[in-house]
Design a protein around this nucleic acid. Structure first.
Lengths: 342, 342
DNA sequence: TTGAAAGCGATACCAA
DNA sequence: TTGGTATCGCTTTCAA
């Protein structure tokens, strides 16, 4: 990366000052808040700025302020996870929306290999960004503890499983509540034997949804052992559903902890000659595009992905403004979207 | 954004120099290529660097080199487009892979409003990045022409519709070829009356796939007027399919220009009492997750999204190294993925 | 091969 | 309210 194509020469503060007939210091003040600058000077400076098309040089500014005006979006996992994760894309949406009101730029920090947090930490520690938004699925890594050491403001998306005895500010959807909602809906529909395809045991999202489901069934005096686990893939969902049907051929409802897994479950159920929802009612999770395109369309628990992203960004911005990090996580409510499958 | 949380104080070049017993200049040379530095000095410097945990300050470096070591990913559209676009997420994957070998950081530049290219251009012109990767669907905006004026290296993903008399380096999938492949497959399956649900007429991807389809049918002496248009949504696909069935109740095959539209088409076809593929064979486009989860699973044309992203990044890196921009677009082959729907 | 010193373009302190 | 000036951390001549 030696030879450098010639870019436009940008006007500097100096030139603006000269054109406006004032000093650099005055222009700088005018640009940053405009305190203690006379109306006269202001006008001249504004005119000079727009005539010259002046844009402050970020590098120069960063050098002295030690502020980069950019924040990182840390995505711990690589591979098609990024693609398939229904929350991530929505969160990204919310994040950019929230950042739009500021002059903060979003820098993408995608792990090169699964579990490669070292490289990301190096970057974060280097002071290249003012803060970090961390999307976390597997909460088990040491990212929270390590991040806390850096003194860099950060907010997690998704509750870290093991914060390592540090307070971690995070935003999460109410997974327990979502599990409750799904179970309650199936109960109210009159289901007699309710199963669940849960997510992985090492992921907070998987664990919490199961907890909610279990809670409601236990309270209703129903069995809570019709449980099998998938890995949040369609194949995993299909396999788990198959095992459940084998063990409990008479089950008539199932809560599947993700829409993607639910598509797999749907296939297995229909292949077994059963109809959805008449023989088996199915509730999914995420309200992703898959829920709408599935046949039959899935009743599912909507995650407020975009709002999660927005709140993450807002909490980070608060910290950048000097507020102390939130000591507790923020839990956003989920919502049942009723379609044809249950 | 006034108050600034105290970050760690990072060691500077100066301190490394002192620790190594050499001058700043020598350390700098050692870091940048290591030309004209004695082995002795090298060793001492390397040791000092790792002991102190030194990381160069990007802002200071940028200030003098006028290089930012970051490139922008420009996403012209906002809203859930980002989410639903099957190519974008894959391309992102390829881009980060290609960038992993360099020290380039990816900065996300999402348009705040549809068609708001002005803000993006301002940012790009400000010299905040060394180059830009532009994801383009609607080729009609003036982004290509405006970008060319900035002298900033850039590469488009997706062929711009109207380059405005400038050569635009781009990477695209072979949409015409994809349309041909789909049509050919349906012909070879023995279909008699082949329709298509095309994409919007103002999007290159939509237009090109239709051209390919038409080409093959014309060459085979088949009618080429069983065409209706959708907007790349499931609803659009369903509506277009409905119109086609009404006009041509006897059609027995259809090429739908995106998997998402195909899910809508599938629903309409099945609701009309017809079976897929027995009564109507369906070929989709994208090989997205929807193709795999659809019932029946979709035969579809796979876009090499990840490879597109990788090539985009590679072409940009070439330019950053001083190579002239490619004068012609680069077209990557598509591939038919045969599943149950056709 | 090495080092001294001059910037790069901003901010911020201090006097005026 | 202003302007002069030191400073941020690095790269890059230019001499030695």
């Amino acid at each position: 990366m030696e030879a450098l194509p010639v870019g436009q020469r940008m006007p500097t503060l100096e030139e603006v000052a000269r054109a406006a007939g004032v000093s650099r210091a005055t222009v700088s003040r005018a640009i940053n808040g405009g305190e203690r600058v006379s109306a006269n000077a202001r006008d001249a400076i504004d005119r000079a700025i727009s005539e010259l098309g002046y844009i402050p040089n970020r590098a120069a500014r960063t050098l002295v302020t030690r502020r980069t005006d950019s924040v990182a979006l840390v995505v711990p996992e690589t591979g098609n996870r990024f693609v398939s994760d229904p929350v991530l894309t929505g969160a990204l949406q919310g994040i950019t929306t929230a950042l739009a009101g500021t002059d903060l730029q979003l820098v993408l920090l995608v792990a090169q290999q699964v579990g490669d947090t070292a490289g990301q930490l190096r970057y974060l520690r280097a002071g290249h960004v003012d803060g970090a938004l961390v999307i976390s699925h597997h909460g088990e890594d040491q990212l929270p503890a390590e991040l806390a050491k850096t003194h860099l403001p950060f907010v997690f998306g998704g509750r870290p499983l093991d914060p390592g005895s540090v307070e971690v500010p995070y935003v999460d959807a109410d997974n327990v509540g979502g599990g409750r909602t799904a179970a309650t809906h199936l109960l109210e529909r009159g289901a007699r034997l309710i199963a669940t395809v849960a997510g992985p045991r090492n992921m907070p999202a998987g664990v919490d949804r199961l907890i909610g489901w279990r809670e409601v069934l236990a309270a209703a005096g129903r069995p809570v052992d019709l449980v099998d686990y998938g890995d949040f893939t369609a194949e995993g969902g299909a396999a788990a559903m198959g095992r459940l049907l084998e063990r409990h051929p008479d089950l008539d409802a199932v809560f599947v902890a993700s829409d993607l897994m639910a598509t797999g479950a749907l296939r297995v159920i229909q292949d077994s000659g059963r109809r959805v929802p008449d023989d088996i009612a199915v509730v999914g999770y995420d309200d992703s595009v898959l829920a709408r395109t599935a046949i039959p369309p899935l009743t599912t628990v909507r995650q407020p992905a975009e709002e999660m992203g927005r709140r993450m960004a807002e909490l980070l911005i608060d910290q950048l403004r000097g507020a102390p990090p939130q000591s507790a996580g923020e839990i956003l409510p989920t919502e049942l979207v009723v379609r044809a499958s249950a």
